[in-house]
Amino acid sequence: MKKNIETLSKEQILTATEETLRRFGIAKTSVTDVAKTLNVSHGTIYRHFKSKAELLEGATEKWLNETIIAPLTAIYEDHSLKGSDSLKTYIQTLIELKRSSAYHEKELFEMYAKVTEEAGNLIEQHVNRMTNQMSEIIKRSDFQASAPDRLAHSIFFATTRFHHPSHAYEWDSPTIDQEFLDLWELLEKGFLNKK
């Protein structure tokens, strides 16, 4: 029995897209496959999303919000962590979430990596959400920072090697964790001077 297309929501389509990607991977997933998962015509999907690229952007945004932003927001809202410990925990959590996704949600991580290359606006919004939270952590901490927003961006981009999908091939290195700790020590001694 066909689903009532009038009641089909974007959220249902995005959830079906994730299921389909897990089954077939990004290279073999089509809009028609998503439609089959929902038992609707592919035209129904196109009523909500203009193209496969737009559908993948929507699925990536949903995935980023649920898999990355929600746990990071919990760290951001945890006021029991103080000073550089709060910021370090935030960055380490970001790194752990990306690594875990690369290893345990390969198809969705591949989707995210592909969309990262093609959907600059979505990724810019995602990065801004994280750096805004980092900036607020800096403001409420004991850092000597005249420009917390710039410092947050600098720290985010200084640690890119450890969380950007284009560097995923490096994450299996046996020295990667120590390399992050070495970098963090430099950041604490330099940019994160305490008042």
Rank of each mutant, 00 (worst) to 15 (best):
P71L: 12
P165Y: 05
T116L: 11
V34G: 05
K62N: 02
D182H: 12
L55E: 08
A145L: 13
S141Y: 08
T159E: 03
D172P: 01
K3T: 13
N65G: 14
N128C: 02
Q12I: 09
E61W: 04
F24P: 01
I138E: 01
K88T: 02
Q125D: 11
S84T: 14
G25E: 04
T89F: 05
H167S: 14
S86Y: 09
E179K: 13
S154H: 09
E136W: 02
L192N: 00
R23F: 01
N128M: 01
D172Y: 13
Y90H: 10
Q125C: 09
F157D: 11
F191Y: 14
E105D: 15
A113E: 08
F24R: 13
L14H: 09
E6M: 09
A152K: 10
H153M: 15
S173L: 10
M130K: 10
E11H: 13
T37H: 06
H48G: 08
H42Y: 09
Y169G: 10
S84K: 14
D85M: 08
D177W: 04
K195A: 07
W184D: 06
G190T: 05
F24V: 00
H163G: 07
R99W: 10
I123T: 02
G25F: 00
E6V: 02
K62W: 01
K106P: 00
K2H: 14
E118I: 04
L186C: 15
I123K: 02
N39G: 14
I137D: 07
E185S: 15
S9W: 08
I26M: 08
S100D: 14
T175E: 12
D142N: 15
I137T: 07
D78V: 04
E107C: 06
I155M: 07
E188K: 11
E66W: 01
N4P: 04
I91G: 02
V40T: 11
S154T: 11
K2P: 09
T15V: 13
F143T: 12
F157E: 06
N132E: 14
F109T: 02
E77Y: 02
A16N: 04
S51A: 06
V40S: 05
H153D: 14
V40E: 01
L81P: 03
L38R: 01
K194A: 08
K28V: 00
D149W: 01
P165G: 10
E105G: 03
L181R: 08
F156G: 07
T131R: 09
V34H: 03
S101A: 15
I95A: 02
M130S: 13
F180E: 03
P165W: 09
R22N: 12
E185F: 11
L151G: 07
I68P: 03
A119W: 06
F109S: 03
N121Y: 13
T37G: 00
V115D: 03
G25V: 07
R161L: 13
S166G: 07
L8N: 10
R47W: 01
Q133N: 11
K50T: 11
D78N: 15
R129W: 04
K82F: 06
E19A: 11
T44W: 00
H104V: 00
W171V: 04
A16W: 09
G190L: 11
T29N: 03
F49V: 10
R129P: 00
M111Q: 13
S9T: 15
R161A: 09
L64A: 06
G120V: 07
E18I: 12
I176R: 12
E136R: 14
L56G: 05
K114V: 03
K82P: 00
V40H: 05
N132M: 12
K88Y: 02
F191Q: 10
D177I: 06
V127F: 11
